[in-house]
Design a protein around this nucleic acid. Structure first.
Length: 262
DNA sequence: ATGCCGGGTGGAACCCGA
């Protein structure tokens, strides 16, 4: 079972790259973020042609999450509990229950709010959103399922997850309030798939388009796959597919992939 | 360097991202 997360920064702009990547890697499940499309305009057909079931929670212009799955999707939940369930709710959380031969696996595609600038209501929105994610993640653990919370968390967990700490001292992604909330998820029992498999530096998932960040490797690790203990017991490997950042018309994020022996 | 790039909307210029 190969499961991936990728902030693709626009499904329309990234369709060729995404299809190429799917053909090369053939993941079983993919969590997508920032599709920037409403459901009605999502290009379902090319994914279905590759054998994927597709669930989308979209929004015009911004945000938007989706889940691709080779196996049947039995259940879909849009949004976190506690969200204002109205038409203004930002499309940032999509959860699916997927059938496998070993039983059900629950997967969430998460596009956590950026939160900049920190002296604005955007930062309090981020922290409130993280509090609601924590409460939901805590509840989900009680199911004792194979569970993967994948997505763009917009949190740099540790100093060695950024090329230069000085560059993000005022950034919402590195504030102690953001990092503490991220670490509280780990304290619940979730494991960061990448850190479960790799130590050290230079493990980045995002490089800004501007200022030659990719060429200078000015990156940060903000896209994560968090595994429940049941899923973590089956973790075989985890990797960042950084080479996609060097492709033509790249997303500014690279995919993260975990392999589970399920 | 909090916008130098890039996507989206809409059809120019502006919002948004990390």
């Amino acid at each position: 079972m190969k499961i991936a997360t990728w902030n693709i920064n626009g499904i329309k702009a990234r369709l060729p790259n995404l299809l190429l990547w799917l053909k090369e890697n053939m993941p079983d499940i993919v969590c997508l973020q920032e599709i920037k499309s409403v459901e009605e305009k999502f290009p379902y057909e090319p994914f279905e042609d590759l054998g994927y079931n597709v669930s989308v929670w979209g929004q015009k212009s911004f945000n938007g999450v989706a889940i691709l799955s080779k196996k049947r999707i039995d259940e879909i939940i849009c949004g976190l509990p506690g969200s204002a369930q109205n038409e203004n709710e930002q499309a940032r959380y999509l959860e699916a229950v997927i059938s496998t031969d070993q039983g059900a696996i629950r997967v969430a595609s998460i596009y956590l709010p950026n939160g900049n600038p920190v002296d604005s209501e955007k930062f309090t929105y981020k922290l409130d959103w993280m509090d609601r994610l924590y409460a939901h993640a805590q509840k989900l653990l009680k199911y004792e399922e194979f569970l993967v919370l994948g997505g763009d968390y917009n949190v740099i967990p540790e100093p060695h997850d950024i090329y230069n700490v000085e560059a993000v001292l005022d950034n919402a992604l590195f504030q102690i309030e953001s990092r503490t909330r991220y670490h509280s998820l780990l304290a619940l029992g979730y494991s960061d798939a990448m850190r479960a498999c790799h130590d050290g530096t230079d493990l980045y998932t995002f490089w800004d388009y501007k200022d030659g960040a990719w060429k200078k490797n000015n990156g940060m690790r903000i896209d994560h796959l968090l595994l429940s203990p049941q899923a973590s017991d089956h973790l075989v490997s985890a990797e960042i597919d950084a080479k996609t950042r060097s492709w033509e018309k790249p997303s500014d994020h690279a995919p993260v992939i975990a392999v589970l022996d399920l």
